[in-house]
Write a protein that binds this DNA or RNA. Sequence first.
RNA 1: GGCGCCGUAGCCAAGUGGUCUAAGGCGGCGGAUUGCAAAUCCGUUAUUCCCCGGUUCGAAUCCGGGCGGCGCCUCCA
Length: 518
Amino acid sequence: MTLRIYNTLSRKKEDFQTIKPGKVGIYLCGPTVYKHSHIGHMVGPVIIDTIARYLTYNNYEVKFVNNITDIDDKLINKAAELNISVEKLAAEMTQDYFDNLNTMGVDTITDFPKATDYIEAMQEIIQSLIDKDYAYPLDGDVYFSAAADSKYGCLSGRKIEEMIAGTRVEANDKKKNPADFALWKKSRPGEPAWDSPWGPGRPGWHIECSAMSRKLLGDSFDIHGGGLDLMFPHHENERAQSECCTGKTYVRYWVHNGLMQASDAPGKVGGQHDRHGDVAVDQQAQEADKLSGSKGAASVKELFAVHPPEIVRLFLLSTHYRSPIAFSDDNIRETGKGIEGFYRFFETFERITGESFYQLPTAEKREQSTGLEGDPAEYFQQLSELRQRFLEAMDDDFNTGGAIGILFELRSTLNALIHSQNLEGAGKQNQAMIDALKTGASQLKELSNLLGVFRKAPAKDSGADDGLVNQLMELVLEIRKDARASKNWDIADKIRDGLAACQITVEDRPEGSLWRRG
RNA sequence: GGCGCCGUAGCCAAGUGGUCUAAGGCGGCGGAUUGCAAAUCCGUUAUUCCCCGGUUCGAAUCCGGGCGGCGCCUCCA
């Protein structure tokens, strides 16, 4: 089956075909680094990272560019407010962004260009647009003439006349046409400025992406990603200026992800199920604002203090990328509960095989994937069907939600083998079945790695001195073991209940008792 | 005012013309297992996809209308 991908430009799913055989160029609009990242900033990177993984798996060579906007009005204002330099603020927030990507397991990005390193490239495009009469300088600014681009509006489905007719386009008497937008902005005293043929100034909002993508990916490239909110005006303008400059198609597939919506208000997220909704809910609904803009949402780092990153990642991928996703602690927690079962399986797997799930060898490419035949035949057939369904889901516009569902089914299949073959008991000696289990687990790893999860053991949730806790637990469980040996259930249960109150779960197994936090 | 998206079980969510008497998860219920639990396994939990019409041999899926929710048109991932 061929890979299909939804293209905002055509509003349809299209067969995926690259410009250069075997190679994919991807550009994702990155953050303006004036504040800490919030969870919404992670949506695009996680999704495109997943797409990049899948394309690599399908034998494409992927170049994935994600820009850093380190010059912008917001940056200038924020730096002034904090009384630090723009450079310092940008450097700090860039580092924060990198840290967050790293924690989220986003590691397919190959290039992180900074806007300020590409001023010259931007000026080249601006000059070229002026030369071709697509742009005009005015009092130290340079504007792109929207009406000069016959295709203007094709991406966002707007018409210039309608936009002007709309009440919300502010009339700017400087611009020739209200729909025109700035390519170059004259700088005011004290602001960062670069020399240009039009006087000292700084780039407009959209031009940086045109310049950086052109330098790193060429005049035309395959995939351009970003949040739905960027479709207009950002991507529309980017497209217009690039295509008018080069005369070529700028981007083949425009991929826009749905926006995350912040809300814990019951009446807001789930529809109108709110029965006791009065004042309190109204209040919450007001707070439940978009994550973006000036309304401060919790930073990613604050979020990670509450939820493990891997769970957050899977949460982001549990809904189709084009749909909006309701962000709430409860929703993430629910994802977390589902994932627990995978961690239990990994532990079981290690107990049985003596090997770490995370160290299992897996195929890196789709075509080198291991054969799925053997005994028990039914088990292997299930593996192979699940694998196929997983890949079909991913082939269909990266249906990660469907793919995750299949991961759960795969887990059940593996647990069922363990159960039916009694691999934790007498079956432990059955090497053929152990191998069958390993094959299945390896497939689980191969597929889950495509989503960027279960690649390595999650960081231990250590709220206290682990060394001491471990020692104490050893002692406590030793005492409980004695109690159980003498069938003193009262003591044994008292210990277990007491531990439960400390968020510690005890599992009694034939080979001994296990414990874990949570 | 203009453009666009969405409405699937208690909740989250996949499926967008027939294999759908609708995947998967959370939660619930019953059973196996267990000293009891935990974990795991097995079974069960929507005859129906917001409502009303229409197209079709056939619709959750297409079309029209209605109701409800949301986004964009201004900075936003």
